[in-house]
Every structure is written in structure tokens, then in C-alpha cells.
Design a protein around this nucleic acid. Structure first.
Lengths: 339, 339
DNA sequence: ATCCATGATGTAATCGATTGCAGGAGGTGG
DNA sequence: CCACCTCCTGCAATCGATTACATCATGGAT
């Protein structure tokens, strides 16, 4: 029992060749019904499990996908991972996880995962990779094996799955406008990040489209962290001419913002309406509950996995989808109020 | 360039046999300096990467470890994963991730991951597995390849890594007592969970040790979720004789509790002191900032990885550590106040 | 009766790295 | 000068599954 049985063992029990056993398992329609049943029984009694290493070697596939996160500790990614994992496992693939920071620090290179046959492809959730790393990924043999999700890299041809960042942002601004706000500010993400850029551009566009007042100091720089929200709150407090509503680039930032405001005895939404982006699990439980733009992270993950596998399994199919956009929706809660 | 080169290619370039190349890579001291250099150069120029599938097949190891979570969406696990990943990658292992729920739903069995050579071992972060699953894991060949972290399963001999649940709980109660509370309640975890049980027992012991008042209805049932905290808050409000401090089984529960209290116009810590357990990242930013028992999740993850690898690499070493306990510490913040 | 198509099965090569064993070169001691 | 030992390297088997090709039986068509 301690030793797992091999194809040979099953073949011996069933009185057939290993080829036949293999066929029963992978191409059942090539085998006659009688032997199929006999072999299936033999598989059953011997508790046979295919040896993945052997299969992977022979088929030249790893049957696994690497998911790269900028940071394992960010709860934003959990639902995306769940979606990826779900659709990968349905197709018999395993999910490897690594953080780009850790890979970089350890001196490994990302392409090694593909080159040494540990993974067939990778889903990258980090748009902030070094230009050097990006260019190493562009090598022809790999470009079809990589997909960006959530974030992406401008001016590259990697396929990607993303949320409707622009539409979501504009919906946020329009909502704040609809409930009476005319002075609307924005806590942006980290300089150079594609998400922050997309959202910031859309924000400015919509402000202009609605003919609202613009002040350079109402665009408060931040990143995606709680701490950035706190800093931004201090910046808001220090303003002469304060916006009555702030659109934050992420829920974490919004929470940090509100948290600092409350420490300084300002009230949300009485003194200022605050909204976020993402609609992470906690948004609903926060005090006050956070108005936000919901990203369907589970769907985003599932879509990413499915798209990548499709591309892996027919690499030459030029007709394959190159980009998928996942709808977002406005979720109104207590952190915003009519003016 | 599109095809990665093999040992054969390198051997040809260096003018040696594949055996020698392999030795240069895995046992450099068996090879003369001259050839070592020549081969190293050949490896360099050909951009050789070892093929993991081939190595895994030959060495009968997967060089990867499966981490099983009850639920990918719980931010509590992120730092643990980071710790595991860090120490695994240092030893050249990859980290596979799956959720026990998903594995179960898809009809896979956990032992399959070991039986089909996808993973050498597994770290289980879920103490709530079915008895049936547990017993399938006990098979002699596997028992040395499994390690529980955070949670564990009573009355089994699996090695485990855990935090000082009892000491942490007692420290919490003692702290609340020290700042003047005499009526202390506890929102417990899900019935049957080992953590909730350990913490609940320790809680009751310490209450008795300090000679404090006990009321059955001060032990409010919950689970580890935000929602459970909300429900518990309603239960607290409904009490005739209310505790002045509540020790919650997790930070998430504490946050839910506080959130609901605030919705009902009760104030924390003025009306009731609330504390959690875990010290997740958000605890510090919550309003009010949460008093909690900090678990060193990174260290816990690192320890788990290291212990498992040690056991995998010397399976017969009876002297190997069987259990590791990670220290916890009390973090006092604004959600608790002296009475 | 003969021939060929069809379907089922077996034979054996193959994927790429590792490693036990054998052999050769060079050095040492008797 | 020979026996022997050490150090280095190569040969070839091996891990276990997959699959191209060969073989064989069966049956239908002519």
C-alpha cells in the first residue's frame, strides 16, 4: 500500500499492455467496451493514480499555472485567486503562487518558471514590473503564455483581463454630481501605475464633461494603502478650499482617509463624502459603510484562467480573445451623502 | 531560442557527457575544477534551465508543497502564506495553493495531490476537515508528509505549528481585569473548531482563576466572520446584565461587533470595551483601533515550511520537532478602556 | 475466395535528468 | 616495476506515461 501503483501494475492486473491502460484513461473511445471495463476495474482495485511528473515530462506540459501577485498580503486579491483556482482546477490544472517581490529578491527570474517547465503559463496581477523584466517576458516563445489580470502594462501586446476602470470612475463622479456635489477631489494611486492613470484620466474627463470646478490640489497623490489614505486626509484638512466629496482610488485608501478624519474629529459623510473603488469584503462593514465601485473579482479571476488556458491549448489561434473587460457597478452606502 | 536547451545540448557544447553536466549542477565537488568551469560556461551560453518534470520524475519528488486553506478569501492567511512561500522558495520548492472547500466540491481527494506526485507534502490551515478525510490522510506513507498550521486536529498525531492560543487568551482576560473590568464576556468561534475550543477553555479558566463573575449568556456563540460579530452585538444589546468588556475570538468578529454597535448608537470603548485576536493588518486602522492579541503570522508560516521540509528530507528522523508554538503578544489600542 | 478497410491492441521509442557502476589516468608505497 | 588507491568521467539503465507505428482479427465488398 505504501507504494503507489503504476501503469505497469494496472496493465498486469488487467492483462493488457500499458498502452491500452493509458488509452482507457486518456482516450476511452479508442478502446473496446469490454477492455475498457476490465481496465477500469483494475485501475479501481489497484488505486492507481497517474504520476504527474511522468505525464508532464512526456507531454511537455506542466499542467499548472503560476499566479504572480505584487503582494500576498493584500486582501484585494483573494477573490480573484478563488476565481482563478476554480477554473484552473476544473481543467485539471494546479495553481502555483508567488509574489513578484519575493521572486525578484531571491534572484530568480520570472521566465524561469516557464523555461524550466514548472508552469505552462502565468497570470500576472502586477502591472508594476521592471521594464527589464517585461522585455524578458516578450520573447516570442512566451508571449502567448502570459496574461495580465486587473493591471496591465501599457504599450505591450500581452492579453489582459480588466475591470471597467474608466466607466466605473465616471459613474462615481456622476453619482457624486447627481447628489449635489460640485467640488469633487480624488486621491490617486501610485504614480506610474496603470490603474491610477486610467482612473485619474477618467476622473478628470468626467469633471470636465460635467463642467465642474477643477483645482490641482484636489488631486491628492497616494498609493493603494491605508496609510496613503491617512496622509491624504491630512492634506484635505490642510486645504483652504476643500472639496465636499472625495473619490479614492481604492477602498483601502478610502478607509485610511475616513479613519484619519475621524481621529481629527471630522465626520464622514457630514463633513465630506468619501467613496472608494473595489468593494472589498470589508467595505460593507466599515463605519460608515463604504460607497464604492464594485469589481467582480471572482468573475475576473475565472475569466483570466479560462482565457489563459484557451490560449495555451491553441497557441496559434489568432482569433482568440485578446482582452476581456469585466463590468463594474456602483454600490451606494453610508459614506456619501447628498449635499 | 524558442526551444530551451537540454542537458544533451550543454554536454555537446562543453564536450562532456550529460552525466558530467548533471554533476556540475548538483554535486559540483565531484567534478574537477577545469571541467566545472568549462561546463558552467556552456550552461551560461546555452541558457540552460533544468527541466523540472524530468528531474521530478527521476528523483521521485515534486519539489513543491501544497498549502490548503479553508477559504482563500480570508485576509488572515495572507501573511502566513508569505512566510511559507519565503522559506519554501529558499529551498527551491514551489507553493501550490488550493482551498479545502473547492477540492472537496470538485470531487478530488486531498491525498491525490500526494499520490499523483504533484506535491511532496502539504501544510493544512484548516482544522475542520471531515473525519473521513482525516483518516484517509493518516495512511502510513503520508503521515510524515503532512503538517497542520494555525489549526490542528485533536487526537491525531500530525505535527503542527500553532500560536499560543491559551496564553494569549489568558493575557487578554488579565489585561481587561487589570484595567478594571469585572464583567467580561466572550464571543466564541464556530462550535467544534479547535481554536475556538482552546480559546474558550482558556477564557473560562482565567475567569475562574481571577475569581470573576460568570454568566452562561456572556459566552456568545459566533464564528470567525464579520457577520457573526454583528449578530453577537445584537445579543449583547439584548442582555439584561451586560458585560463591560468583550473578548472576541478574532479581529474580524470584533470588527463586526463594533460595527453593529455603532449602527445601534452604542460607543466603543465608552459603552463596552472590545478586543480581538490575530492583529490583522486592518486592526490598527479600524475605528476605533483594535486592541488585540498579535499572532506572528509570518513567523508561523516560515516555521511551518521549514518544519515540513525537514521532515520530508529526513522522514525517519524520530527526533524531529513535532510541534512548534509561536509566541503571541498583547497590543493595546483604542477599542478598550479602563472602567 | 480474395482484398481491403476498419478497429483494437501491442511494441517500443521517447520525454530529460540522475546515478550506480565501470574504466582510465595519475600518483604512491613497497 | 607492480599493485593499489584516488579522482574524475563516461556508459547506460532508470523514473512512468504517452503515442507513432506495426500487427492482427474481423467483416464487407467484389
Amino acid at each position: 500500500m505504501s507504494k503507489t501503483s503504476t501503469l505497469q501494475d494496472v496493465a498486469r492486473v488487467a492483462g493488457v499492455s500499458t498502452a491500452t491502460v493509458s488509452r482507457v484513461l486518456s482516450h476511452p473511445d479508442m478502446v473496446s467496451e469490454a477492455t475498457r471495463i476490465r481496465v477500469s476495474n483494475a485501475v479501481e482495485v489497484s488505486g492507481y493514480r497517474v504520476n504527474r511528473a511522468a505525464r508532464n515530462l512526456r507531454t511537455q506540459r506542466a499542467h499548472s499555472v503560476l499566479v504572480l501577485l505584487p503582494d500576498l498580503a493584500n486582501p484585494f486579491f483573494s477573490a480573484i485567486l478563488e476565481g482563478i483556482s476554480l477554473n484552473l482546477s476544473r481543467k485539471g490544472y494546479s495553481m502555483l503562487i508567488a509574489s513578484t517581490k519575493q521572486v525578484h529578491d531571491s534572484g530568480e527570474r520570472l521566465i524561469d518558471y516557464l523555461d524550466d517547465a514548472r508552469a505552462d503559463g502565468m497570470i500576472i496581477l502586477d502591472g508594476g514590473l521592471d521594464a527589464e523584466v517585461i522585455s524578458s517576458l516578450k520573447v516570442a516563445a512566451h508571449s502567448t503564455r502570459i496574461l495580465f489580470a486587473c493591471e496591465w502594462v501599457n504599450e505591450t501586446e500581452f492579453p489582459s483581463v480588466r475591470s471597467e476602470n474608466r466607466r466605473g470612475t465616471k459613474a462615481a463622479v456622476r453619482y457624486l454630481h447627481d447628489i449635489g456635489h460640485r467640488k469633487i477631489g480624488h486621491v490617486t494611486g501610485p504614480e506610474g501605475n496603470v490603474l491610477m492613470q486610467a482612473r485619474k484620466e477618467a476622473f478628470v474627463q468626467e469633471i470636465i464633461a460635467l463642467g465642474l470646478e477643477q483645482q490641482p490640489e484636489w488631486l491628492i497623490p497616494g498609493d493603494f494603502s491605508l496609510a496613503a489614505g491617512c496622509v491624504a486626509a491630512k492634506a484635505w484638512i490642510a486645504l483652504e478650499n476643500r472639496p465636499t466629496a472625495m473619490f479614492c482610488v481604492s477602498d483601502q485608501v478610502a478607509m485610511g482617509f475616513i479613519s484619519e478624519m475621524s481621529r481629527r474629529n471630522f465626520k464622514v459623510p457630514e463633513d465630506v463624502s468619501v467613496m472608494g473603488f473595489d468593494d472589498i469584503d470589508l467595505a460593507e462593514q466599515f463605519i460608515p459603510p463604504l460607497t464604492s465601485i464594485r469589481q467582480d473579482r471572482l468573475l475576473l479571476g475565472q475569466t483570466a484562467a479560462t482565457m489563459l488556458l484557451e490560449r495555451l491549448e491553441s497557441p496559434d489561434d489568432a482569433g482568440a480573445e485578446h482582452m476581456a473587460i469585466i463590468p463594474v457597478s456602483l454600490i451606494v452606502r453610508g459614506s456619501t451623502a447628498a449635499l
